[in-house]
Computed example of a mutant assay.
Amino acid sequence: MKKKVFAIFACMLLVLSVGCSKDPAPETPDTDNPAVETELPKSLTAEETKQLYTDAMEIYADISMANFDVDTEKSIIQDENKYYYKIEDERFESYDDFYRYLNQYFTKDCIEKENLIDEWLFAEGKDGYLYLLAAGRGTDLFYAGYSMGEPVMTEDSITVEVTAYYTDEPYEGEAFTEAPEEPIDFETEVYPFKLVPEDGTWKFDNFKLFY
């Protein structure tokens, strides 16, 4: 009889101990699941968006036109006849630095989609430095300038439209960054840009050089 009572008492203690146990720790949010909401970076003002665009366009244009200072005394040869020269740029030194610099402004997807580190144009030397193929191109002589619209914030992105202005004859003035007083004097084309959050900051997920 005593054994039976003791067994019942033990079972009661087990039930009570389970009922009084602490609540399980909350699950860690699954950031890989797009359905899980994550905190977005602070929205950008029109001025901040324009500055980010200006900085991104500077390096994008340099890449598009192969516009970098190089050390012609330091070169590597690939495919027997392709000469690459060491880039001399205070913004980045090594091949890896170059990628990190681009990733400040462009998402990883954008870097890949836009082929910003073109294996035909750039090469990594055995020393780890960044080398540039001896090539380049000029600008659109009819490009006059651009103006930027107000950035539009959505649930998970910022979109902004940039209007590029072109003339019928080669433009001889200084490129402007505000809408001209007489827009009828120009032909225009509108380019949409999209910024998305990555690594806690807003970055361009698409880009375009219009000159």
Score class of each variant (00 low, 15 high):
residue 78 Q to V: 07
residue 33 N to C: 08
residue 41 P to H: 06
residue 87 I to S: 00
residue 29 P to Y: 08
residue 57 M to Y: 11
residue 30 D to N: 15
residue 92 F to R: 01
residue 77 I to F: 06
residue 66 A to G: 13
residue 83 Y to S: 09
residue 58 E to Y: 12
residue 65 M to Y: 11
residue 67 N to F: 10
residue 66 A to F: 05
residue 29 P to F: 09
residue 62 D to L: 09
residue 85 Y to E: 02
residue 29 P to W: 09
residue 84 Y to Q: 03
residue 31 T to V: 14
residue 78 Q to H: 14
residue 29 P to A: 09
residue 71 D to K: 06
residue 62 D to W: 06
residue 72 T to Y: 15
residue 90 E to W: 10
residue 69 D to S: 15
residue 61 A to R: 14
residue 47 E to Y: 13
residue 28 T to K: 14
residue 85 Y to P: 00
residue 85 Y to V: 01
residue 41 P to C: 10
residue 50 K to T: 08
residue 67 N to V: 01
residue 65 M to C: 09
residue 42 K to Q: 15
residue 61 A to E: 13
residue 69 D to Y: 14
residue 83 Y to D: 02
residue 69 D to F: 14
residue 33 N to L: 11
residue 71 D to F: 05
residue 77 I to Y: 07
residue 28 T to I: 13
residue 89 D to W: 04
residue 43 S to P: 01
residue 38 T to K: 13
residue 82 K to T: 07
residue 41 P to Q: 07
residue 49 T to M: 12
residue 48 E to K: 13
residue 58 E to G: 02
residue 51 Q to A: 12
residue 32 D to F: 13
residue 55 D to M: 10
residue 63 I to K: 01
residue 85 Y to N: 04
residue 29 P to G: 08
residue 79 D to G: 03
residue 27 E to V: 09
residue 84 Y to N: 02
residue 79 D to C: 03
residue 64 S to Y: 07
residue 82 K to D: 10
residue 46 A to P: 02
residue 34 P to A: 11
residue 51 Q to V: 06
residue 38 T to L: 12
residue 34 P to D: 10
residue 66 A to Y: 06
residue 47 E to F: 12
residue 92 F to E: 01
residue 46 A to Y: 06
residue 73 E to G: 15
residue 63 I to L: 10
residue 68 F to K: 05
residue 48 E to I: 06
